[in-house]
Amino acid sequence: MKVVILDERCVGHGMCRLACPEMFELSDEDGHAYVTSETVPPDLEAAVDQAVRGCPEQAIVVEA
């Protein structure tokens, strides 16, 4: 599974970090999220899925 954040949509709700801190960091500049790696390890797929469903801006996209 791959994950990307659509920078033009992310405004820094931070809910993805709450869902999966291993995969999502928040910028020290503006609080917007970025991924630590585009490839999601299998054991974090469920948490990343929660991040996708928890994002109010629909800014997180995953590909199988």
């Binding site: 405004v11 820094g12 709700h13 931070g14 809910m15 709450l18 869902a19 609080g31 929660q50 991040a51 469903r53 928890g54 994002c55 109010p56 801006e57």
Partner: peptide
């Protein structure tokens, strides 16, 4: 959880002080 509430607003004006 997940909880995609928008109590801090949404879009570009979303609350700057939420953290």
């Amino acid at each position: 959880f997940p909880n995609r509430h928008i109590a801090f607003g949404a879009g570009m004006h979303r609350c700057i002080g939420s953290f």
